[in-house]
Amino acid sequence: MKRMRLLFVGVGGQGTLLASRLLGEACIKEGIPVLLSEVHGMAQRGGVVESTVMLGGLKSPLISPGEADVLIGFEPLETLRAISYCNQNSVVITSLSPIVPNVVKLGAAQYPDVSSVFERIRSGVSGFYACDAEELATKAGSPKSVNVLLLGMLMGTGLVPVSLESMEETIKTQVKPKTVEANLKAFRTGVELVSGK
């Protein structure tokens, strides 16, 4: 398969690592060569969390600026922070639900107006998909399923050669039993949002 570099960014506690791991598990199921890298340690104390999923036999665990094929941002500010990893051929998937950083709460900085920047990004990349992921995940059953909803959006683009069945099967076995229903609903919401089916 074509080699592909996917970058997941979010805020500690959003389940960014779980989302990339779910994708990795589904790839193993389908026999797709996959390598993931994760940020651990200090960065998890409410800080930025990044993970990469490298498909098609890549052996480098990291992505250089300008080289992400897909950016999946779990939080709008973090999507902007990571946008330099994209190029004009990249696909950007982002949540529009902000998680306000402490420095903003303390009044030491301002949360930027993301919508105008996103409009410019939309016209600069090959695909741009955004939604209020928190609201949609809540409607699907749990605000905690933002990660799986975004994973659904990724699958909805058809860019990753993993079947929806494999992905759903993986979700069923990897998330807590109590949350399977809400996660599957969130996943399908994400898929439909992008693919229209």
Partner: peptide, 10 residues
Amino acid sequence: MPPLPMRPPA
């Protein structure tokens, strides 16, 4: 690009 507030671990 507007200035992006940092999100240091806390």
